[in-house]
Amino acid sequence: MSDEKFRHESLQDKESIGKYLNALSDGFLNGKLRFSWKDKQLLLEPQSLIKFDLETKKKDGEVKMILRFRWEEPSEGSMFIDGPLVIETKE
């Protein structure tokens, strides 16, 4: 699942965009953001800290707003993982 990618693009208006934002907001609250298409699924479980970037630009009548969320998935290599510390020695 390391390279899984989900993308959705559509045209919305100020009313219809709400349902997308609400769905994402609920997903964050539940700690599970699930994206599925065809027989594939991408599950994101933000547990730790989330870096949140909000950027907005106005240029020649065109407006751009970028919301970016970044976090790390807990992994074996992470030093904050719970459990005993094991030190192996060479014979």
Binding site: K19, Y20, D26, K32, W37
Partner: peptide
């Protein structure tokens, strides 16, 4: 596009 799901939003 196939049907997709974004969290609880089914499209």
């Amino acid at each position: 596009a196939p049907d997709i799901r974004i969290c609880d939003l089914a499209l």
